[in-house]
Design a protein around this nucleic acid. Structure first.
Lengths: 265, 265
DNA sequence: CGTATTGTTGAGCGTAGTCAAAGTTAGTGG
DNA sequence: CCACTAACTTTGACTACGCTCAACAATACG
């Protein structure tokens, strides 16, 4: 599915949506050595504390990253989809401090660190793409810090739905209206810092308000403008490129307007 | 103060604590062109939505990064201290989506993007240091996602104090016991997703428990082991290097032990 | 010395958590 | 094709952590 013929094409397409890559760089990426593996739902790709010696690319499917607190509660710190170079950090950082699990049956390519670092040394464009990918991750995580610290349950869930819809569309899997991620309310709770029970209640109200529709695992966004407004969602923080290769306009920061401007010195 | 003679030495020292840099690379960094400016407390270094054309290095002082929610609440998404290359992302990302403000009177060096990108192209070690810096940011932010999503007020504040103490020591400003950051309870609340009132109550209890001491702006950590345990703190996620240049051991993930292991497939 | 900022405390409230049970759906094997 | 089971969703009753509003005390600063 999704053109996952087993090659690294999804990776190249994803990176190309981050930075312009020339033909030489694309070919070098496609020529990377890798091991192709299939993983089942909930299987671990990376475990915290492990010293892995290769990075993984999601060729198809979905994955999520978690951290555990002492109290046993789990927090999802990120979702990944087709083309994501999910273990890139391990090439430069010794220990991984989070777990990576498949959200559903998925296809993964394992690429040795050595091959990646070698590639970076030879093609500065590739190195820049990886750097940029990390910077985009930073931007996304800062946004989640805001969401978890300052938004209430309804707003957090609205934001999550908006983000997933936009990201899946950008990755070419699905459209802006139906979330194709196979998410349970439990997982949504783990991502938004809420309990599954509360997620359920929020969804109930959202359905009643005509914001979304749910049946089984799929969520349909019925009122984009309102959901976006509730979720404080502005896609700027995702730093997606337009097909033309230019970064989309639209600042961020509470709709471009500095509400409650802190005092200047 | 702190050897801030106006040169970029703090930056080089900080980067050297991220990756090994050879003499040539160090000299090239020190030779970067820059504009030296002094900023007053609360002044903005970067405003969200702005397209800046230079990056800033904190030569002395402290800074913090914020994002605003629609409801007017502000969330601190990061703290910076001496040597931090705070605006690095802007070299590759078009728009900044957060604000950067000085926590107290500070000294800053502004370095044009062009000079930085040029340097990266010429010295792959520098490029790798910047990439690694971004990856460390990612790791820190994932940790904060866990903290904000899953820890309660007391735990969050304990974690913040531990992090600040360790980071200031790593940067050579202060020791592990007295937080030198000029933080108000208001700011601590904005960083931990709490209100200043609640922060105050938590501190009251922490003082009563003999965990910390406060007088005025300074916080003294009286019982490191216990504070660390309460805050779920494990410095692994900061990816600090030992003086020898090796990354510190000690995984993470709720003290190395996978509590509540999710089902395997 | 006076004013602004920061810290402290109290009373009451509300959002989200906990615990528990019943209802649905999907998947599996007889 | 149906029975059975496991996973997920839904609902209710009760609890509690942290917020709000408000006043006052203690510092810091000009």
């Amino acid at each position: 599915m999704d053109g996952s013929d087993g090659s690294l094409t999804p990776l190249v397409e994803r990176l190309a949506s981050l930075t312009a890559l020339n033909a030489e760089e694309r070919n070098a990426l496609l020529a990377l050595p890798f091991e192709h593996i299939s993983i089942k739902r909930d299987a671990f790709l990376i475990r915290a504390g492990a010293n892995v010696e290769s990075c993984c690319v999601l060729l198809s499917g979905f994955a999520y990253r978690t951290k555990l607190a002492r109290n046993g509660l789990r927090q999802i710190v990120g979702f990944h989809l087709k083309g994501d170079f999910v273990g890139l950090g391990s090439a430069l950082l010794d220990a991984t401090n989070d777990n990576l699990q498949a959200l559903c049956a998925s296809e993964v390519a394992l690429i040795p660190h050595g091959a990646i670092l070698n590639l970076v040394d030879r093609y500065s464009g590739v190195g820049r793409a990886f750097w940029r990918a990390a910077l985009v991750d930073v931007s996304q995580l800062r946004q989640w810090t805001l969401i978890l610290g300052r938004l209430d349950a309804r707003e957090r869930i609205a934001h999550l739905l908006c983000e997933l819809a936009v990201r899946q569309q950008a990755a070419g899997v699905g459209n802006e209206h139906v979330i194709v991620w196979p998410l349970t309310q439990d997982l949504i709770g783990e991502a938004t810092g809420l309990t599954a029970v509360h997620v359920n209640r929020v969804f109930k109200r959202m359905r009643a308000d005509g914001l979304v529709g749910t049946n089984g695992l799929s969520v349909t966004i019925l009122d984009w403008p309102r959901l976006q407004a509730i979720g404080n969602f502005n896609r700027g923080y995702l730093h997606l490129l337009t097909p033309a290769g230019r970064e989309e306009p639209g600042g961020n920061e509470a709709e471009g307007e500095a509400v409650n401007p802190p005092k200047l010195s």
